[in-house]
């Protein structure tokens, strides 16, 4: 029983992290038709900027509570800033050439990820977090680290916030309408390019946030941190249906749980099951679980 509870909660925390990464990817693809390979780098940068902030503010090797929350803010801002730079500087000139957009996000992802290695060297870094976060709470006999709960809570907040944004705000409407028919949104006199930048920045912010929490979850970071998780986020996005935030949330839960439970039995079964799931979804429901019939 305690193993089941532990695996479930850890799986949900993993799902929360994937969701933070996937939600932005999904929105970006929904609106702009861009498969953003740079997203993993925003995640890596979120993790590194969080680590760096804590390293600057707290005495070596410890993480104070204020430092941790400051780190989360810094990670979010850094993610948003990098995303804005990539969108405006690299993607915008290439809107007429979709394949090259994918390629340039690949290049940006590679360059930005390697930049962390250039600045902070390639070795893994231990992520110092406040004790109350790495301590465990006992639930139904399972000892679960507290950062799992924080991660899940953060993802739920983000999910609620995004749904409100999409349903209630004008920019949310623009994003949803743009995902359906970009040209018609333009023909209503709306500057869709600004919406592109906004969505990219928002996605970058969420990836940065996810990177900071991901660092707390795994306890250490290295330059390949983002690219490893990006692949799973892609799978989440496809299974959930490109452009659907709710779909991403559902798919993230499926993937997070499948991975945790699978890998508990053998070290590779979880990862393998996920790929099979992806293949099955694509063959049976090519639009994803919550996908529209685009």
């Amino acid at each position: 029983m305690s193993t089941f509870v532990l695996l479930t909660l850890t799986g949900l925390a993993l799902a929360a992290m994937y969701f933070l990464l996937a939600a932005g990817l999904s929105l970006i693809f929904g609106l702009m038709d861009v498969l953003n390979f740079a997203h993993g780098a925003f995640f890596t940068w979120g993790a590194y900027s969080a680590w760096w902030t804590i390293d600057q503010v707290s005495p070596a090797g410890t993480g104070s509570t204020p430092a941790f929350f400051l780190a989360i803010v810094v990670a979010t801002v850094v993610g948003a800033a990098l995303a804005t730079i990539v969108e405006v500087g690299l993607l915008r000139p290439l809107y007429a050439r979709p394949i090259f957009q994918v390629l340039v996000t690949l290049g940006a992802g590679l360059t930005l990820s390697q930049l962390t290695s250039v600045i902070w060297r390639p070795d893994a870094r231990v992520f110092a977090q406040p004790n109350w976060l790495s301590d465990t709470s006992t639930i139904l006999g399972a000892r679960v680290p507290n950062n799992r709960f924080l991660l899940i809570a953060a993802a739920l907040l983000v999910l609620a916030g995004m749904l409100l944004f999409l349903k209630k705000t004008r920019y949310g409407l623009i994003v949803r309408a743009g995902a359906e028919n970009r040209e018609m949104v333009r023909a209503l006199g709306i500057d869709v390019d600004r919406a592109f930048t906004l969505v990219f920045a928002l996605g970058g912010a969420l990836a940065g946030l996810g990177g900071a929490f991901g660092a707390a979850y795994f306890g250490s970071i290295d330059p390949s941190f983002g690219s490893v998780n990006l692949i799973f986020a892609f799978i989440v996005v496809v299974i959930g249906g490109l452009g659907s935030v709710t779909g991403s949330a559902l798919a993230a839960v499926v993937i997070g749980l499948a991975q945790q439970f699978g890998n508990y039995y053998t070290s590779w079964a979880g990862d393998f099951v996920i790929v099979l799931l992806l293949a099955a979804v694509l063959l049976l429901r090519p639009g994803g679980l919550m996908g529209s019939t685009r």
Binding site: R170, L173, I174, R176, A177, E180, N181, E183, M184, V185, L188, G189, I190, S292
Partner: peptide, 18 residues
């Protein structure tokens, strides 16, 4: 027509308001 199918009628009209 190109109405936004996923938006409500009201949202379609509000989106068009400049």
């Amino acid at each position: 027509r190109d109405v936004f199918a996923g938006l409500t009628v009201e949202q379609n009209l509000r989106l068009a308001q400049r």
